[in-house]
């Protein structure tokens, strides 16, 4: 299980291969990649800055992996999240989950992203033609998370 918070970009193919080849009982690897869009709430976004809470961020992400492991048969998991300045099409986040069968990996990956979106201490600030603004949290993200609590 790996958690990394970094300014540098990551190589999805290399990360998938490293996980895929690490154990011969792995039958499925699911990956989610999030990237910067060039629009949000109707405005063009030229640059995005990601702030986080060093120390808590890593614990939060590790805790999310532990919760996923408690619910599904997860053989390996990885979360990489970038911070600092990012531009449209830059990768922001990578979640990888390996399991023996696909269902566990699909569900665990979706669960981990839903919890990351609502619990991990990251904040986005975007630059639009009219100036800088902090991105507002979305209620739809809370609803996505709450379906796992039913």
């Amino acid at each position: 299980m790996v958690v990394r918070v970094q300014t540098e970009d990551f190589d999805v193919g290399a990360e998938v291969n490293a996980m895929r080849l690490s154990e011969s009982n792995i039958g499925a690897v699911v990956s989610f990649v999030g990237q910067v869009r060039d629009f949000n709430d109707g405005d063009h976004v030229g640059l995005m800055t990601l702030e986080h809470y060093p120390g808590m961020t890593e614990k939060s992400l590790a805790g999310i992996i532990e919760q996923a492991q408690a619910r599904w048969s997860v053989l390996d998991a990885l979360i990489i999240h970038r911070v600092g300045e990012l531009k449209p099409l830059d990768q922001i986040v990578l979640v990888l989950v390996a399991s023996a069968h696909r269902k566990d990996a699909f569900s665990a990956c979706e669960f981990m992203m839903d919890y990351l979106k609502t619990e991990a201490p990251f904040w986005k600030k975007e630059q639009t033609p009219t100036g800088e603004r902090w991105v507002e949290a979305k209620d739809s993200d809370n609803q996505s998370k709450s379906r796992w609590q039913q």
């Binding site: 999030g34 922001i92 990351l116 979106k117 201490p121 990251f122 904040w123 986005k124």
Partner: peptide, 10 residues
Amino acid sequence: VAFFPPVTGG
């Protein structure tokens, strides 16, 4: 103790 707005990562 830390205070912050609702989180917006991912």
